[in-house]
Structure formats: structure tokens, C-alpha cells
């Protein structure tokens, strides 16, 4: 062991320099050429900057809701609820989410609520909802914003992101993008 110690220590230091240092610098260098210099995708709307992929809390009735979050959309402390399917406390929480959703959206019937709107995501920062999740909110938003349902439906269709290559994985809607578009629609109308 003694004979090996010093060479192994030196080898470790070389590795530290190479894999923690040079490798990181190569990728950091490449990131300068990447979209937004490797700081994550952003959207600028009305002079404000947002991270496209970090979900935001939308609980206001005039916006499309985002999913429930176990960490209240704290982007410095991500995480899920880690609740078991069988946990009665958890099930009571889901029940209360369903009830609250129905109170705010009286036209919706329960079977139409997709499961993601009443369950918390894994990261607590899920930026998306399903197409169905957006559709069932159209009536509410139409009333509050005084925009026709057809207009909002069109907005939802425009903001629906296809599966990868149209072939693989789910369709989805970025809630932030949809809500920005919604605000813009109101502004156009106001003019």
C-alpha cells in the first residue's frame, strides 16, 4: 500500500486538474456559443425576463393554472411531495384540490379533470400542463377576460407543443408561454 500511495496521490491530482478543470472549461467554452451563453433558455416579454423552462406559480383565475407544486415553485429548492399513493393525508389533499378546481371552474365535470392538475410534479417546477389541462380552463378564462372561447381555444392550439418529431412522447403546453400570449391578446384588444 505504501508503495502505491504517492503515485496514486499524484495521479488523483492530475485527474482533478483534467476532469474537474479542463473538462469543465471545455464545456464552459462551448456554452458561450450556445443559446443565451449557457444560462438556460429565456423569454423576454413586456421588458421582463423569464426562464422558459422553470415553471411558475399560476393560481390567479385570469391565468391558466400551472400544476400543484410540493415546493410552491421555489426554484432554489426543487422537489416532489414524495407522498405514497396510499397515504390518506395525501389523498385528502388531492380531494381538496379537485373540489377547489370545481369551485373555480363550475362548468367542468369531474371526469374531465386530467390527473396532472391535481397532483404535484417531481421537481415542483414543472413548466407544462397537458392539452386537456388547458382546455378545461378555457371557459373560466373567457369569462374573466371577456375574450371569446374560440379565440382562447386558438391560442391553446398555437401553444401546443407537438411530440418530438411528431412521433415520440407526449404533447404539452408551456403554461408561462400560454399566459404571456393571453396577456398580449388582452393588450391588443385594449388598443
Amino acid at each position: 500500500m505504501k508503495k502505491n500511495f504517492l503515485p496514486a496521490l499524484k495521479l488523483t491530482l492530475v485527474c482533478l486538474l483534467f476532469f474537474s478543470g479542463i473538462y469543465t472549461i471545455i464545456i464552459l467554452g462551448a456554452a458561450q456559443l450556445a443559446p443565451n451563453k449557457g444560462k438556460g433558455e429565456i423569454i423576454i416579454a413586456n421588458g421582463k425576463t423569464f426562464y422558459t423552462n422553470i415553471g411558475q406559480k399560476f393560481t390567479d383565475d385570469k391565468y391558466f393554472y400551472s400544476r400543484p407544486s410540493a415546493v410552491d415553485y421555489n426554484a432554489a429548492s426543487s422537489g416532489g411531495s414524495n407522498k405514497a399513493n396510499s397515504d390518506s393525508e395525501y389523498l385528502a389533499l388531492v380531494k381538496s384540490r379537485i373540489d377547489s378546481f370545481l369551485v373555480h371552474n363550475p362548468e367542468v365535470i369531474k371526469v374531465d379533470i386530467p390527473s396532472e392538475m391535481v397532483t404535484a410534479s417531481g421537481s415542483g417546477l414543472d413548466p407544462h400542463i397537458s392539452v386537456q389541462g388547458a382546455k378545461i380552463q378555457i371557459k373560466r378564462i373567457s369569462k374573466i377576460r371577456n375574450i371569446s372561447e374560440a379565440n382562447i381555444q386558438e391560442l391553446v392550439s398555437q401553444n401546443t407543443e407537438e411530440s418530438m418529431l411528431d412521433l415520440f412522447g407526449p404533447e404539452k403546453i408551456n403554461v408561462l408561454k400560454l399566459n404571456i400570449a393571453l396577456d398580449n391578446l388582452n393588450q391588443i384588444k385594449a388598443k
Binding site: I98, K110, D112, S115
Partner: peptide, 19 residues
Amino acid sequence: ISAMGITQNIGNMEGKEIR
């Protein structure tokens, strides 16, 4: 959750991400 009348066409979504 099915027993509460929610259909779960996209599966058990607790702890999962839509994308």
C-alpha cells in the same frame, strides 16, 4: 384517485413531469 372520479388517462402523475 380513480375512486374519486378522476380518469388518469395519462397515468399516475404524482411526482412526474408532463414533458
